[in-house]
Write a protein that binds this DNA or RNA. Structure first.
Lengths: 345, 345
DNA sequence: CTGAAAGCGCTTACAG
DNA sequence: CTGAAAGCGCTTACAG
């Protein structure tokens, strides 16, 4: 299906003259280096005539300031690093977007790093990140590795943990209690008359705690133990299909399934349709995350929504405030969750 | 649904002692700074006894080398920046993952930046990125802005454009021809006996060129002009549902729809099912991207697959080679595409 | 409004 | 195997 193109060898040297520096701009403009720096960063401190001459030199030479050098001296990188388990999934995109937008307005650039759910490379990645001295670090989930906690605390860099809750945050925290969420979903299904519950869950820590909360609530309500199937994270549509099959093989009479992600829930919806199981009449299905198309599938997916935008905005404000030397009044916030009832339950 | 937590004011000063530097490690170990540097970066150049003393000091003080300072002096940042239109969509995740994995093995860290499809902030973001002097820049799509092209070419930084094709790349390019792809899909549908084609497309440039190729092929084949509906990017499931409704309102007898993304195609599948239109009997549906669950929806989605992993690996190798001073033999590659035939067509 | 000197924390280049 | 000096490209802190 493809025809390779004729070779066009790229010479590494042809584009490799050294970058233009402040010194060259200063020479061309006939002023000192510090004056060029001011003309660029704090133009109101410089006379109009000087400003114009500097601007001419900047344009003529194509000068792009080396922000790394500036950051080294001023001890302000204007970079904030966000770590997410996966870039592919839909869950964290909204938070990162909000974080990026809010920090950009305050002069920061957000760089995203991918950790994976496995955490094997986490400490190593953390050293690479701390070594670049960002002005803030946003973590997805709480940090458990003692080594990682020590590293971050010792670094002095403002840290925001998100998407989870703990009484011992490294620094700041905006998140939610997943056990409470699981329990609330269970109570919701109970209130809707469901009695024979099932649970389909990915293997990450937050999903596991949602599962615990769900199960505990079922016991409190006097229900029989939920049929459970635990898999791995990230979860897929295929896992959802296979999961419903397995649950039905174990307990054919289940009347509700809580899935640890919307993607799993969509797989369950597909499998139910293929098998002729009526949703929600025979089986209620609930997801987690409120993926953007949960509302437009058919039946529309009931789910639990987390305000990722607010999480991102909160983290942005905290980090920008700290970078400007302001204290954060309330650096631990539980943003909660909301159950979104749609056609599938 | 949520109860705010008791306030726990965070003092910005409590965590703000300055970071440990090489000098302090050197003093504690009783050696010079350069010896500490060697013990960390090229341990084979240092005696075992010295190495041990340095390691003791590093651990005791919790030293994390400042990579920014090192990068400034050595003119090697070991950072590669990738720019994607959106972090939320599924399309670019595989490429970024492959890029990250491959570059990590060669000692680089990948930072991802989000550009959006609008390109309004593109030049500004580019200056912020070039200003940090990464060892490579990976772009999604080809760069058109003359200002952006000039900036990147003048920077001397290795640049790889991806996901598209042009005869005038900035530097290196691994991508595909979207017009050819659109034409191939049209010919495929024709070969399957479809004659009354329709097209549902997002508004980004590559989608527009797939649409052009599709339409041109239809005319060459002597078909009637495809029913077309063009929207915006990123595309959504809801756009797919609304799009099929609109296409049917225009031309009720269409027998095939090519969608510019799998997400649109999934919306079309949902809308078709709700309306009782049999897929693929009455209507063939094809997507683009081979999203991870295209295979497990029902009917399974026919689509076009791009090898994002290979694109990411290729870009990684080129950039790492260039950073090591090697020339890249064939810096322009068309990786093509493959049509994946499943149940929906 | 402008500038000379010092310094951010490392690595390079040279020397022994 | 080890080190003293210089320098990467900026900004800070001081001075006028």
């Amino acid at each position: 299906m493809h025809a390779p193109d004729p070779a066009r060898p790229a010479s590494p040297t042809s584009r490799d003259r050294p970058a233009v520096t402040l010194r060259e701009v200063a020479q061309r403009a006939g002023v000192s280096m510090i004056t060029v720096s001011r003309a660029i960063n704090t133009p109101q401190q410089v006379s109009e005539r000087t400003r114009e001459r500097v601007q001419e030199a900047v344009s003529a030479l194509g000068y792009v300031p080396n922000l790394v050098a500036g950051g080294l001296r001023s001890a302000r990188s204007h970079v904030v690093t966000a770590l997410v388990p996966t870039l592919t999934g839909p869950l964290f995109g909204g938070m990162v977007q909000a974080l990026t937008d809010a920090l950009e307005l305050r002069g920061f650039q957000v760089m995203v790093g991918q950790v994976g759910y496995a955490h094997s490379r986490e400490d190593e990645l953390l050293r690479a990140i701390v070594g670049r001295r960002p002005d803030g670090i946003v973590l997805t989930g709480v940090m458990h590795s003692p080594e990682g906690r020590r590293l971050l605390m010792a670094s002095g860099i403002p840290v925001v943990e998100t998407w989870d809750f703990t009484d011992t945050p490294i620094d700041m925290l905006v998140g939610l209690r997943h056990e409470a969420l699981g329990a609330a979903v269970c109570e919701h299904l109970f209130a809707k008359g469901r009695r024979r519950l099932a649970l389909l869950s990915g293997g990450d820590e937050r999903a596991a705690r949602r599962a615990q909360g769900f199960e505990a609530a079922a016991m409190r309500l006097g229900l029989r133990p939920p049929a459970m199937r635990l898999g791995k994270s990230p979860t897929t549509h295929a896992d959802g299909r296979a999961g419903l099959m397995a649950l039905l093989a174990d307990m054919p009479d289940i009347d509700a399934v809580f899935c640890s992600s919307d993607m799993l829930a969509l797989g369950v919806l597909t499998e139910a349709r293929v098998r002729g199981i009526a949703v929600p009449q025979q089986l209620a299905v609930m997801g987690f995350g409120d993926i953007d198309f949960a509302e437009t599938v058919s039946p529309a997916l009931s789910t639990v929504r987390i305000d990722g935008t607010r999480m991102g905005q909160t983290a942005a404000q905290w980090i920008a405030d700290r970078a400007e030397g302001k204290a954060v009044a309330q650096p631990v916030v539980d943003i909660g969750f909301s159950i979104v009832e749609r056609g599938s339950s």
